[in-house]
């Protein structure tokens, strides 16, 4: 199930977490909350972010050092 969880702490601090989304849709779906509430100070992407609907995107890195 796709969910957006908003934790509003007693201090006024806000944390938004998206669950069940794949790929960039999580960013798009939750953007209205960021526009509504203020400035995004930090963002952590989790593995599901790098998944498309049907396949996992493999990120390859070139060995730049050594």
């Amino acid at each position: 199930m796709k969910q957006i969880i908003i934790d509003v702490l007693d201090s006024g601090e806000i944390k938004i977490e998206t669950r069940g989304f794949k790929g960039k849709s999580c960013i798009e779906e939750s953007q209205f909350l960021k526009d509504l509430l203020g400035e995004e100070k930090a963002r952590n992407l989790v593995p599901a972010y790098y998944q498309t609907k049907n396949k996992v995107v493999i990120r390859k890195h070139l060995p730049l050092c050594g």
């Binding site: 960021k34 509430l37 400035e39 963002r43």
Partner: peptide, 14 residues
């Protein structure tokens, strides 16, 4: 889970 954001609140809506 896909991503986690921290927001600094701004009051926009009266």
């Amino acid at each position: 889970m896909s991503h986690i954001s921290r927001i600094e609140l701004e009051i926009m809506d009266l």
